[in-house]
C-alpha cells in the first residue's frame, strides 16, 4: 500500500495553487490535510499525476469574525476549529460537529476545506454547515465565487467545485442569541463515520420555535437539509407530537443505502430517532440561552 508516483508541487500562494490546477486540469489533486486523500492514494484508488500540496499556503489558515460572519480559511485544521474560542462561541454547532471527526491525530492534519471538498456523505461537518446555512468561497482562474453549502454537494465525493478551483474559505453566519444547537450521531465505534448524524440549529422565542435548521449526514448520497421537518416545527412549535411528526418527515426525506455497517432501514430509523433527541436537546439549550 504505497502511493503511485506523482509530480509534487507546494505553492506558497492561492494564485500559484490555482495556476498549477489550471496547468494540470483533472490530473491534479489538491492535498490539504490528506486524511482522506492519502489512504486512497496508498490504496492506489486515486492516482493523481500532480499533487498540489496547499499546506504551505499559510495565509489560508485563519479563523476570524467579521460582520456577523465567522470566516474560516480553507486550511484551518479541524483541531483548531474544535479548539477555537470564536467557533465555540459564535457557531458552537460547527465545533461540536468537528469534534466528531476521527481522532485527534486526524484532526491535527484534517482541514475544514478538505473535509468539504472531499464530500464524504457520512461526514459530520457538511451536515452542520447545512444547518448553519454556511457558504464557501471557491477561488479559481477567474477569481473567487461564493457557493452556498446547500449547493455544494452533487453526490458522493462530488461537489460543484471546478477542478481548477480551490476552496479558500468557509463562511458561517454567527448563531444569534436565543439559539440552541446540537450535533448527534450514531457510529459503530468512537471516531467512525456516522451511520446517521444530525445537526440542529434552533432559535426559540419563548415557547415558539422561531427558526430551525436541520442537516443530516450518512443517510443519502450527500448531506441533506430537512426542510419539511423544519416547516413542521416552525409552524407548530416543539411538542412531543411535532417532534414525532418531524422525525417521520426526516425518515421520509432521507435516502440512505445499505452497507456492511448498517442497512438503509436502520439508518432511516435512526435518523428519525436522532431527530427527536437532537431537537429536544436543542430546544432545552435554546431555553437556557434565552434566559
Amino acid at each position: 500500500m504505497k502511493p503511485p508516483a506523482f509530480r509534487y508541487v507546494d505553492p506558497r500562494s492561492v494564485a500559484d495553487a490555482v495556476g498549477h490546477l489550471q496547468e494540470h486540469g483533472g490530473g491534479a489533486k489538491i492535498l490539504a490535510g490528506g486524511q482522506s486523500l492519502l489512504p486512497l492514494m496508498n490504496l492506489r484508488l486515486v492516482r493523481p499525476q500532480v499533487v498540489v500540496d496547499i499546506n504551505r499556503i499559510s495565509a489560508l489558515a485563519y479563523i476570524r469574525e467579521t460582520d456577523g460572519v465567522l470566516a474560516l480559511g480553507g486550511l484551518s485544521r479541524l483541531h483548531a476549529v474544535v479548539g477555537s474560542d470564536a467557533v465555540t462561541r459564535r457557531a458552537p454547532l460547527l465545533a461540536e460537529a468537528a469534534a466528531h471527526v476521527g481522532h485527534l491525530a486526524i484532526r491535527h492534519r484534517g482541514t475544514i476545506g478538505g473535509n468539504l471538498a472531499h464530500a464524504d456523505p457520512a461526514s459530520e461537518i457538511p451536515a452542520a454547515l447545512l444547518a448553519l446555512e454556511g457558504e464557501v468561497v471557491a477561488t479559481g482562474p477567474r477569481g473567487a465565487r461564493t457557493i452556498a453549502v446547500a449547493d455544494l454537494f452533487r453526490g458522493p465525493l462530488s461537489t460543484a467545485l471546478d477542478p481548477t478551483e480551490l476552496l479558500t474559505e468557509v463562511r458561517v453566519p454567527i448563531t444569534p442569541p436565543g439559539c440552541g444547537s446540537v450535533f448527534l450521531e450514531v457510529s459503530r465505534r468512537a471516531g467512525d463515520f456516522a451511520l446517521a448524524g444530525i445537526g440542529v440549529l434552533l432559535q426559540r422565542d419563548g415557547e415558539q420555535c422561531a427558526r430551525v435548521r436541520i442537516g443530516v449526514c450518512g443517510v443519502g448520497g450527500t448531506p441533506l437539509r430537512m426542510r419539511e421537518a423544519e416547516r413542521i416545527l416552525e409552524r407548530s412549535g416543539v411538542t412531543e407530537d411535532t417532534l414525532r411528526a418531524a422525525a417521520r418527515a426526516v425518515e421520509h426525506a432521507v435516502a440512505p443505502s445499505d452497507d456492511t455497517q448498517a442497512s438503509a432501514d436502520y439508518r432511516r430509523h435512526v435518523a428519525g430517532v436522532l431527530t427527536v433527541r437532537a431537537l429536544r436537546q436543542a430546544w432545552q439549550r435554546a431555553g437556557r440561552e434565552g434566559r
Binding site: 459503530r188 465505534r189 468512537a190 471516531g191 467512525d192 463515520f193 452497507d259 456492511t260 455497517q261
Partner: peptide
C-alpha cells in the same frame, strides 16, 4: 463488532480497518 462480509460474487466487503471493526478503548 467484527465480521468478514462477503457478497454473492465472493467479494470481501469489509476489507479495511474502517470496515472490519476492531474495538477501541472507547468500546
Amino acid at each position: 463488532y467484527e465480521e468478514f462480509v462477503y457478497d454473492s460474487e465472493g467479494q470481501l466487503r469489509t476489507a479495511s480497518l474502517l470496515d472490519y471493526l476492531l474495538p477501541t478503548a472507547a468500546e
